[in-house]
Nucleic acid binder design. Structure first.
Lengths: 230, 230
DNA sequence: GTCTATAGTCGGATAGAC
DNA sequence: GTCTATCCGACTATAGAC
């Protein structure tokens, strides 16, 4: 029954690694790096505490491995969105007004991808970890930013530029892109205020749809041909 | 030289309390509740470690006292804004279109107050603490929400309602208000991404002005009479 | 109200048997 | 690769002198 092939991803060691990363994601997300103890993580993973040292070199190594895992999950989810965007950008019209309209549509598609990703049930733990890292970024944040987030921000900036009159490399364009991201992400970041002000507990599929709908309305107004989007 | 009056706010004990709260604000903000040690706080405050127990009952008590301090600072800063808003709302025109325009102006004033408050140099430490509490709120967050943030969110919601066709108690109105807050706050919350994507280190007065300017443009577009703000 | 000293706890790491 | 046992440092809280 046991598979001796060392490349088998279900070998005993691999199972242990997976169990630890999975448990660490939850425990680190819940408690933060310092408050999370290796004892509680190993207990949640049903694995011996000493194995954290063996497999990851220590608590910090496990933490970084968790971010590697988050990166692969985000990449997996956003890859199709990025492909769609790339494809459609290539086919954009030569006509300025038409291109703006096309870019706006693609922009909404891209942000919907973002909203859906963070609407996934298992993303709540990621968000906590990412938000904590944002406060003062360490190597763990580098993994995410270099691996995916930077690319995504640049893609969004390009779409904002194409959907407006702002040059892609202008500060205004980047600021406005950041603001759009803020419109979406605050619901995930500021759980405390969200749940009280909106009486939303967590983010149900209904809540996600409301978010997408209201975001679309907001963006369409901001990028309307007549809008003072200079 | 020494003042024996027990109501004197500069008595030795008061000085100690202040020094501890001040140091705790910085250290808790930097490291988070668990990673911050009472030793490092008392050292930063130039005060004996045992005095945390004496004055605040323990580490947790000091943490709550810090939030009380943040609340008083926020209240102090936002009080004049709230007064201005209240005054101007009372004088709003009967005419629907005019009132929308007036409400939009006041809305921008209110948000500028928010932007300025979080632009203050000393607010960086608050933001860290507030963001951490948002993840899973405790008594400390209650202090802020009950004391100020809930009131502010309701005020913003009222202004959004008056500046649009959305009923004040509708979900859409609250969601859109939340999105506006997100547009502003992400710059403070997501330092890691902000600094990389915008090449902003911290938030200089120039950055704050850019923020206010771009926010105004965004809001004017969203609330333009022709906009699909249903 | 302040200080020193310490009790009591817990956490991360690791040696060494299997 | 896994497990037990343990070391050792760091932490909070507090007793008790001043």
């Amino acid at each position: 029954m046991r598979n001796m092939n060392s490349t088998d991803t279900s070998s005993r060691g691999e199972q242990t690694r997976h169990a630890l990363i999975d448990a660490a994601l939850k425990v680190f997300g819940q408690a933060g790096f310092d408050a999370a103890s290796t004892r509680s993580i190993s207990k949640a993973a049903n694995v011996n505490q000493a194995l954290i040292g063996y497999h990851f070199g220590g608590k910090r190594g496990l933490y970084l491995a968790v971010f590697g895992h988050i990166l692969s999950q985000i990449t997996e989810h956003m890859a199709p969105v990025i492909v769609t965007v790339s494809d459609r950008v290539e086919g954009f019209s030569e006509d300025v007004e038409m291109r703006r309209q096309e870019a706006l549509e693609v922009l909404i598609v891209a942000f919907n991808g973002l909203i859906e990703m963070f609407g996934r049930a298992d993303s709540a733990a990621w968000v906590r970890l990412i938000v904590r890292e944002q406060q003062d970024p360490t190597d763990a944040f580098e993994i995410l930013y270099e691996g995916m987030m930077g690319r995504m921000m640049n893609m969004m900036t390009m779409l904002v530029s194409l959907a407006s009159d702002l040059p892609e490399d202008s500060e205004a364009c980047r600021v406005r892109t950041h603001m759009l991201v803020g419109q979406v992400l605050l619901f995930h970041i500021a759980r405390g205020t969200t749940s009280r002000h909106l009486s939303w507990s967590g983010l149900s599929p209904d809540n996600i749809n409301t978010l997408k709908e209201q975001f679309r309305l907001s963006v369409e107004a901001q990028f309307a041909p007549g809008a003072a989007f200079q």
